[in-house]
Design a protein around this nucleic acid. Structure first.
Lengths: 250, 250
DNA sequence: AGACAGAACTTGGTCCTACAAGCCAGCGGG
DNA sequence: CCCGCTGGCTTGTAGGACCAAGTTCTGTCT
């Protein structure tokens, strides 16, 4: 339950769009109208509309009434943070099988990504994730000790790590993802029950708390035929970019 | 040059962060300070900060000074819209080779994606895109007639379609992307000079103008070893989601 | 009927004020 | 010397006002 009025209003509008009160293509009520009906100032109404506009749900240009663009889609970041949450939202039963869990010194890459000094400990977790019993992805995560030391309190086969850690005051606030395509290694293929060489989506993820202190560094590989990523973006703001992979080609 | 003051301020701040005036981890000046120094109201300053916050460049929570999280990355949507623009920004020379260009009736999928009625015409363009002469991706795009009929005025081997169309008043304002991994088909492999079966990133893109009217529907495949997608997102807003690919598995 | 000009409406941008909520540093007490 | 508390700073939210710029509708004139 968002405390802020404008978040509340935004949610209300989103719901109204979702349940068909404002079908795609229809014109939304004016700021003035909403502000009267909802008892909020125009300023607050604008902030609510801005939120919807930002994720491309409605159009908005000067002089013209706002228009509904499309159905609202699955809701963004909260799903991205958690495999479990996402799985439930699409009506699948999430589960996991711990392949490896150990505490060890950080590798060079991990130390760099987690901003650790050489030799510091990390908790390294490899899990096979399943959707309704079928393998969907492999998660290889190094947790900074601050977060990793709490992993013992989490039922890794059934619970969501990030949901659980929130209860201990660890919040996954920012994330940087890199997505590329790779052919399945023998190990990946075996775990995912796919053909060796099958196309997989590899996601590198670096998650930090609100202050930008790294919490986890993860390499996840998804079965290419089970999962896709989708992004909606608009002119104004959109944090998606292509990256160039520098590599020699013979 | 953005007309609005807050956009200007946001750009200024972004630059200041980029050139090291505010290194990662450092604390940014307070709203009050910026508003005095820049001669803008607190409201305007807040909007500028909000923009930076939204793409995960700075942290921002109540009571505490904002902190720089990371270097600013390549700038998002404008790059995403245009292969050419992106290529130039990473210091590569973009080029293209037209493989096919035709006007024909829309397929069923195209008609649905472009919101056309059966039998309407689309302009279908297949281009091989190169980075400094090396194949990087194949672009298979169906343009709604409104945009497609202007393609004749574009030098497809050298110019950027979307940059050019802007001059005719066609703006690519919203886009929905879906990204997955596939193995290269024989044709893809040949064009991209890759092994058949190599892992490729496939992006489906549906772009609309600001009113949500579809402009193009495209299927792009990238060499997995040449391109990666990267996304930065934060708790508040971030339009990335996983999608479940529904497909029978024997 | 159709074209055009203007009025009314609507959104975009900026500034102001006020208060609430959270953080932090510095001060004082143990 | 260390700990804890408090008061001031900083950000979050909300409301109000004004003008600019663009759209839409209306009514009139041809």
């Amino acid at each position: 339950m968002p405390a802020a009025m404008y978040q509340d209003l935004a949610a209300t509008l989103r719901d109204a769009i979702a349940d068909g009160s404002f079908p795609p293509g229809s014109r939304l009520p004016s700021e003035h109208e909403v502000s009267e009906r909802y008892g909020a100032s125009r300023n607050t109404v604008r902030r609510a509309f801005a939120a919807l506009s930002q994720d491309g749900l409605i159009s908005s240009h000067q002089g013209a009434r706002r228009i509904v663009l499309a159905e609202p889609r699955v809701q963004s970041f909260s799903e991205l943070r958690s495999f479990s949450r996402w799985a439930r939202s699409i009506g699948e039963v999430p589960s996991g099988r711990v392949v490896l869990l150990e505490r060890r010194a950080a590798t060079e890459v991990e130390a760099r990504q987690l901003a650790l000094t050489a030799g510091e400990q990390v908790v390294y977790l490899v899990r096979l994730r399943l959707l309704s019993g079928r393998p969907a992805m492999i998660e290889r995560t190094a947790y900074a000790d601050r977060a990793g030391s709490l992993l013992g309190f989490v039922d890794l086969e059934r619970e969501s790590v990030c949901e659980r850690l929130e209860e201990y005051g660890i919040f996954f606030a920012h994330a940087q993802h890199t997505i590329e395509a790779v052919n399945a290694s023998a190990e990946d293929a075996a775990l995912l029950e796919a053909e060796p060489g099958a196309a997989l989506l590899r996601e590198h993820r670096r998650t930090t708390d609100h202050d930008g202190r790294p919490l986890e560094w993860s390499e996840d590989v998804y079965r290419g035929d089970a999962v896709a990523f989708s992004i909606r973006n608009s002119l104004g703001a959109a944090p998606l970019a292509r990256d160039h992979v520098k590599k020699d080609r013979s």
